[in-house]
């Protein structure tokens, strides 16, 4: 599509995340197909790339406290923003650390991948990924407790993203309730 393979890797490629899901879809198709050769022949056909003209980016690793205005301020450096959708906790409807940024042109989205992805916003390194486009419902976290899945079992303490993983927090709370210890006993251990 872009001619011969370059001597330097491009930063405006979709991440492994999207490709992995695509591969899974293809693999599933392969498994479903009776004849393996048939399935391969199917793969060789140029499939319409859903990201070919993508104008939307998924933006991850935001702090829960980062505001829309901050996102606007940074992402406008790559072009006018058509629409911004903040990712929300499914239950509390509060920001949960991701968003979708939609530009007017594909080029602006690619430039954003190249120039903004991997830089800091609100003092956190953010991640950008080309996205086929926002659909209703995707603004909500898909984790068990309402946030993003990655914030369920996260073992590091991340102040910008609600501390420990939420599932871990819950487990600890339960543990604490079950044991009849006084909090003061734990104070020494810090």
């Amino acid at each position: 599509m872009r001619g011969p393979r370059g001597t330097v890797e491009r930063l405006d490629q979709p991440s492994a995340y999207f490709n992995r899901n695509k591969r899974r879809r293809l693999e599933k198709e392969n498994r479903d197909g009776d004849n393996n050769d048939d399935a391969n022949a199917h793969n060789d056909q140029p499939e319409e790339d859903p990201l070919k003209n993508a104008t939307t980016l998924y933006v991850g690793n935001l702090s829960f406290y980062t505001t829309e205005e901050q996102v606007y301020e940074l992402f406008s450096k790559c072009g006018e923003i058509k629409r911004l959708i903040m990712g929300l906790d499914r239950f509390q409807k509060t920001p949960c650390g991701f968003c979708f940024v939609e530009y007017y042109t594909h080029q602006d989205a690619l430039d954003c991948m190249k120039y903004i992805g991997g830089t800091k916003l609100d003092e956190r390194i953010i991640r950008t990924d080309l996205d086929p486009g926002f659909t209703e419902g995707r603004q909500y976290g898909r984790g068990k407790s309402g946030g993003q899945v990655r914030d369920e079992y996260r073992e590091d303490y991340d102040e910008g993203r609600g501390g420990l993983g939420r599932a871990l927090q819950l487990a600890r709370e339960r543990e604490r309730e079950n044991r009849q210890y006084n909090d003061d006993d734990y104070g020494r251990l810090k």
Binding site: K77, C78, G79, D111, K114, Y115, I116, T119
Partner: peptide, 12 residues
């Protein structure tokens, strides 16, 4: 040639 933010990002 490119958007200003590119040159920002190079310096970063």
């Amino acid at each position: 040639e490119h958007k200003l933010v590119y040159y920002h990002s190079v310096l970063t």
